[in-house]
């Protein structure tokens, strides 16, 4: 164990040293040799750019390349028939829409379900999170305790929380079914009935996702200057108007990025729908879980890569539309002006 401590310690020092060294040398090179005026910002973003390029962008490009291939279990390597071609790319894309992605389900029903899932999740996360944030924002006793308890799920590792919920939805032993049993109401088949399973997955993810949203919204609420409310009070507006005219517009810069990231993360949430659905009900699968099954249970890798690309494009367009519609303007409009000032500084 102590060997690891020293090993990791030295490696960390070496990595940090390498980063710093690289930055210094890059700066000297750009600034002294090339006389480049913006040497400092380039140097500052260099480590992030290199890291993201290697660890995130390169794999994405690689996935793109794989979508031009016929890679599957019998054509895993060039020696055994792996080939890349533009024709194969179109075949892969065409297969997404014409061949079942799962055993029986086609692309569009799964896409619709994914959209429904994302819409349900984001709506509940934002509305419950907002409600929770408003309650926690009130000055009252025990606020610290409530806050700690309510934000608790965020600290529990997701995989473990999902396993706990799988137990809660058990037919015989689950929490809700046990209560239903006391009242002699027919128990619910959370894990074997398609519709109920989808509901169960949704409940689990709401439980998991609300705290994070609540933290962010609470931050937004706390920053609102009370004088805005005083002004509103003088104008004699109703509580509801105060919410729609004062609170929500002021929180937009916090909410919009949170919602966009929430949409992206929910759309691509793998753990919750996959782990909760151990019975592999196709009616609970969303696009990413279907993708995983195609890629790693059946090893249709060329096909799955093309599907990943489609998912990427869908998300990109959703995000761009959201950005257009919501216009998180407070930040974005002033940006040009701000940067100009920065240049002259």
């Amino acid at each position: 164990m102590f060997r690891n401590v020293t090993n990791v310690g030295f490696t960390v020092l070496a990595v940090v040293g390498a980063i710093v060294l690289m930055e210094v040398l890059l700066y000297l090179f750009l600034h002294k040799t090339l006389k480049f005026r913006k040497a400092l910002p380039i140097v500052l973003i260099a480590p992030a750019v290199i890291g993201i390029a290697v660890l995130i962008l390169y794999p994405i490009v690689y996935t793109f390349v794989l979508s031009f291939s016929n890679m599957n279990l019998s054509n895993l390597r060039v020696s055994s028939g792996l080939s890349h071609s533009i024709g194969q790319f179109f075949t892969n894309i065409a297969n997404i829409f014409t061949v079942p992605i799962l055993k029986q389900q086609y692309f569009f029903p799964i896409l619709l379900r994914t959209m429904l899932w994302t819409a349900i999740q984001v709506t509940f996360h934002v509305s419950i999170g907002f409600f929770m944030a408003v309650l926690l924002n009130r000055p009252m006793r025990l606020r610290g305790l409530y806050r700690a308890l309510l934000l608790f799920p965020w600290a529990v590792p997701q995989v473990i929380a999902v396993l706990a919920f799988r137990g809660e939805f058990n037919y015989e032993y689950g929490y809700i079914n046990t209560i239903l049993g006391y009242f002699d109401i027919e128990k619910i088949r959370w894990l074997t009935d398609g519709v109920w399973n989808f509901i169960a997955v949704n409940i689990t993810n709401i439980w998991l996702g609300v705290p994070f949203m609540a933290i962010i919204l609470l931050g937004g609420l706390q920053s609102i200057n009370p004088t805005f409310y005083d002004a509103a009070e003088i104008d004699g507006v109703s509580k509801f108007q105060r919410l729609t005219n004062v609170t929500i517009p002021l929180m937009k810069p916090v909410m919009v990025p949170a919602i966009i990231l929430g949409v992206v993360w929910t759309f691509n949430n793998f753990n919750v729908p996959y782990l909760l659905n151990q019975n592999e009900l196709e009616t609970t699968d969303i696009l990413v879980t279907a993708l995983f099954r195609a890629a790693f249970l059946e090893f249709r890798i060329g096909f799955a890569s093309a599907l990943a690309l489609i998912i990427f494009l869908i998300l990109l367009s959703i995000s761009l539309i959201l950005l257009k519609v919501t216009k998180p303007d407070i930040q974005f409009q002033s940006e040009k002006k701000r940067l100009k000032e920065g240049e002259t500084l």
Binding site: I52, I56, L57, Y58, P59, I60, Y62, T63, L66, I260, L261, V264, W265, N268, F270, L287, V288, L291, F292, A295, F296, I301, A304, S305, A308, I311, F312, L315, L316, S319
Partner: peptide
Amino acid sequence: LATQMIPGAMLLLP
């Protein structure tokens, strides 16, 4: 933002 959009499972192989 776009880096968050590619399904994580697909990055395993690359």
